[in-house]
Design a protein around this nucleic acid. Structure first.
Lengths: 202, 202
DNA sequence: CGCTTATTGTACCGACTGGTATTTAATTAG
DNA sequence: CTAATTAAATACCAGTCGGTACAATAAGCG
């Protein structure tokens, strides 16, 4: 409607590129120590003024919530979609491992999952950010659970445990792998540990 | 020698109680968000002045290193000793689980392992603290490895994996359990996940 | 009693934080 | 053109941080 891309609105035209700011902020939070990344630093990196950032995101909490939302849409959603396909359980499980342990050794590349990293950051995350993280987390567990239930129905999941527990277990192991990667541990070892832990599902 | 407890040394008598400070600091770091605990706050809680703390511990890095050292001596050493007994592998493994998932629901009680919590704190830990953490970590892995090797020799460990990998795996799972507890997750669920993950060793 | 030695706490430092009041610049509407 | 509207950036705020200069204090020694 009014969101017409060619909107000759009143006032001074906006130059702040929201997506660019989110890109820079996401990469920064992902790669570096979240607790030591100030808004001032983000502004410096985006070459925007601080009031500009506050006008766009309200406050630090707003920025981080927007970042985690973008991360979910761009990185996590594809994985969740993969869990909704009809592929064989083991095949999907392998894909999950590949995703979690995906190795990108290029210097400065982000390691692990930003969501997990934020969840583990004990720092004072704002309420909105925290709520957003919890929401995504719940969605993930629910997705795992449905996946396991479908696989059980197909006879592809035979381990003796509830779908509920299996979902928690899978989430826990993937989270841990991400956390190890973020800490800089050897990706090959992380992958082996993950595969060993998930082997109880076969 | 000269460390005689009754030393009528010159100068103004010392009133700063090093052990008390370490107790308070350890409990604080253990229970709360490490990144948001300032030296000022520690001083307030110990009722000491800031220069007093600096004289005793040099700087924040020194304090944290001293804390993690105390934690190792008081909390971790007994566990490592347990791993050096001749008890049956499974029995020791059960004890390990009990320790890791030890439930203390009293309000404000520390959850999880301080060492793991510090390792995960992405915040800028000082060099001395970081080195101390790495050292203890290496010791732990080495202890696990020896334990597995002894158990293999006794025929009590039959899983098809190297002692090296088993040690990493055990450490990883215990770390993760600690991390979950610190995050406030349900201790019963954490324990079930841990037991499931360690079941591949039996 | 000073003199020396050692520890104390007050009061401060510069740097940085999240957040904002205020002015200036760029555009459309009339 | 002027007025209205919107966004821009400068310059600031109070608060906190890790860390320190320095003077006061309390003891033994002579």
């Amino acid at each position: 409607m009014s969101l017409n891309p060619s909107k000759p609105s009143r006032g001074r035209p906006k130059t702040l590129d929201r997506e660019h700011v989110l890109d820079v902020a996401m990469a920064s939070y992902w790669k570096e120590d979240i607790g030591n990344l100030s808004l001032n630093e983000i502004c410096r990196r985006c070459d925007i003024s601080k009031p500009g950032l506050y006008r766009e995101f309200l406050n630090e909490d707003g920025l981080m919530k927007a970042v985690i939302l973008k991360y979910h849409q761009e990185v996590l959603s594809p994985v969740q979609q993969m869990l909704s396909t009809d592929a064989a359980f083991r095949e999907t499980l392998d894909n999950l491992v590949l995703f979690a342990a995906s190795i990108n050794d290029s210097q400065g590349a982000p390691k692990g999952c930003l969501l997990i990293k934020m969840r583990e950051a004990q720092m004072h995350l704002g309420e909105a950010t925290r709520a957003q993280i919890d929401l995504i987390q719940e969605q993930a567990i629910a997705t795992y659970k449905k996946w396991v239930e479908r696989s059980k129905a197909k006879g592809e999941f035979t381990a003796d445990m509830s779908a509920e527990f299996a979902a928690s277990y899978i989430d826990a192991q993937l989270s841990h792998a991400s956390s190890q990667l973020a800490r800089g541990e050897d990706p090959q070892l992380v992958k082996r540990i993950l595969m060993a832990a998930l082997s109880i599902l076969k």
